[in-house]
């Protein structure tokens, strides 16, 4: 079946490029793999009938945030030689905390009941109209709060970035 093989291909691509993000020595390569990861996730959203989410994921993450990442990395011009080597205990601490997070995720997902998933995926579920209706009727307050939060973050960034007069 086409959908299923697409799903396996996209999953393989997502996991492979996500691993490559942390394995790659060159930071610019890492960012490029991260872009690939976002594309794979965009593909997953399309498979789940969430077209709006898919395209917004592509515009915001792959198109804007990753351009900024790449911009900063190019400006710093980091490469494998100039990358500072972290001491061993930090690496071990990183591995341990990452493993703990994995344990928590696995533990949380083990008891999840997946039988209900896939039953509610009507083809028009992810359209902009339906998403807008839900956001501005049921979830109006959280939506507005999220925008206030973003605004606060933006003001904070401007304040920090402002040159001292």
């Amino acid at each position: 079946m086409l959908t299923q093989s697409l799903f396996y291909f996209l999953s393989f691509l997502a996991i492979f490029s996500a691993l490559a993000v942390i394995i790659a020595k060159n930071p610019v390569h890492s960012v490029l793999y991260l872009i690939l990861t976002f594309f794979a996730i965009t593909g997953h959203y399309i498979l789940l009938n969430a077209q709006f989410l898919a395209i917004v994921n592509m515009i915001v993450y792959a198109g804007a945030i990753m351009v900024l990442f790449l911009f900063v990395l190019m400006l710093l011009n980091l490469n494998a030689e100039t990358e500072p080597q972290k001491p061993a205990y930090i690496k071990i601490a990183g591995v341990v905390s990452g493993g703990l997070l994995l344990l928590v995720l696995v533990g949380a997902l083990k008891t999840v009941d997946v039988s209900g998933a896939g039953g509610t995926t009507a083809t028009d579920m992810g359209l902009v109209e339906n998403l807008g209706m839900v956001l501005f009727n049921e979830f109006l307050l959280p939506f507005e709060l999220a925008s206030v939060l973003l605004l606060t973050a933006m003001v904070g960034a401007v304040l920090i970035g402002r040159r001292e007069a």
Partner: peptide, 19 residues
């Protein structure tokens, strides 16, 4: 049904070639 956003996405990704 998201044609405009698709165009916008293509524009957003267009800079990668140059970068």
């Amino acid at each position: 049904n998201i044609g405009i956003l698709y165009i916008f996405g293509v524009v957003a990704l267009g800079v990668y070639g140059i970068m």
